[in-house]
Design a protein around this nucleic acid. Structure first.
Lengths: 213, 213
DNA sequence: GGAGTTTTTGTAATGACCTAA
DNA sequence: ATTAGGTCATTACAAAAACTC
């Protein structure tokens, strides 16, 4: 985008200079007429049909500006506008049409690139988030582990003193299976290339807590 | 993509023969030529002055095949190969060079597109992972909460029975407070490319456990 | 360190094909 | 059915950037 602008400017400068030195080499000259093109007919040899055509490289900066302006308003080009522009800029309507076609193509490419880099940024951010969450999970699990140990310790103490508690060891069963289960599936979805991190199985949770409640 | 194939085939059909010989001369011989351009020395043909140069539109299918073949082997084109190819295919070395230039450009675009969609897939996967982790964190926090409650309960019991334990209520301090705060910032900053994950600071863990040990 | 190349980037133009009025 | 206008893919050129010797 910036490049674009720079180029534009560069061109202008450049052309300004060059046109002084070599007048009318770069700005279109070519009396655009000799184009007896019958819009896609069997024009095979048509090439040979006269056609010592033109080459006229490069439109002038002014012409490009006008075109760019119009393109900004609307990427499509109705015949109306096309003809108007053509006569305003002293170009063949055909050229205007071509310019718009090419401009649309360029625009498409640029857009793709923009979307790419934006997606990349997003992705990077999400990856960072993911890492953060992973370590958070690890941390929480540790804490949970410690808590379990502590509970066990306390439970033993209580047991020893109050002499009751029918069950204190059968706590590790399935806790919240329906939950992650679904997500796990989604994650596997399509041969999830990267980041197909399993690292679960810890779905047992802490229902043992319920035993005490 | 598919269109591509079709076009290729079509081309083979009718372009095979007449690809070379028409004297396409629509490269201007525009009035002004004066091209005191440095660096354009090998103006073979008559490009510089007269310009009855023939530029053939469309290469034959065979020519394209050969070129494509060579491109597959190596995207770069040394003069060596260029000249060889040119004479093999009956083309101007210049054309071969141009063809390679354009081919490289096309290849680059295609590659960009591929990378885009691949990145997109990756991103989707990571997002799913992130969701999973988020719910896991939620779950773990809940469990932790429950565990703490349970510990508190047991602690009280032990306290009541064994008549000791000076502190039993100051266990609910920050479980993971410093954590999210900092990361929120990180997530927004896009500079911190990959993995600027601190993922520490949580070393405080569950020191409260020690109170009971 | 600059002349001479080659590669990349940006434009212009053409042909084939598709679609809708 | 014709045809104007659009998209795609190509061919080609020129200027700038990037190498090379």
């Amino acid at each position: 985008m910036n490049m674009n602008m720079n180029n534009q400017i560069d061109h202008e400068d450049h052309m300004a200079l060059l046109s002084q030195l070599y007048p009318d080499v770069y700005t279109q000259m070519v009396p655009q007429q000799a184009k007896p093109r019958r819009r896609r007919k069997k024009n095979k040899g048509g090439e040979g049909g006269g056609c010592a055509a033109l080459k006229k490289r490069k439109l002038s900066a002014e012409q490009v500006n006008q075109l760019e302006m119009n393109f900004g308003n609307e990427h499509k080009l109705e015949s109306e506008r096309k003809d108007r522009l053509a006569s305003e800029l002293g170009l063949d309507p055909r050229q205007v049409a071509v310019w718009f076609q090419n401009r649309r193509a360029r625009w498409k490419n640029k857009k793709l690139e923009e979307e790419y880099s934006s997606l990349k940024k997003m992705h990077e951010n999400v990856v960072v988030e993911k890492c953060r969450l992973e370590s958070e999970v690890l941390q929480l699990k540790e804490q949970l582990m410690d808590a379990e140990k502590e509970i066990q310790r306390l439970a033993e103490r209580v047991e020893g003193v109050s002499s009751n508690s029918p069950s204190s060891s059968l706590s590790m069963e399935a806790v919240e299976p329906p939950f992650l289960g679904e997500f796990g599936v989604v994650a596997d979805g399509f041969d999830n290339m990267f980041y197909a991190v399993p690292e679960n199985n810890y779905i047992h949770g802490m229902e043992w807590v319920n035993l005490y409640l």
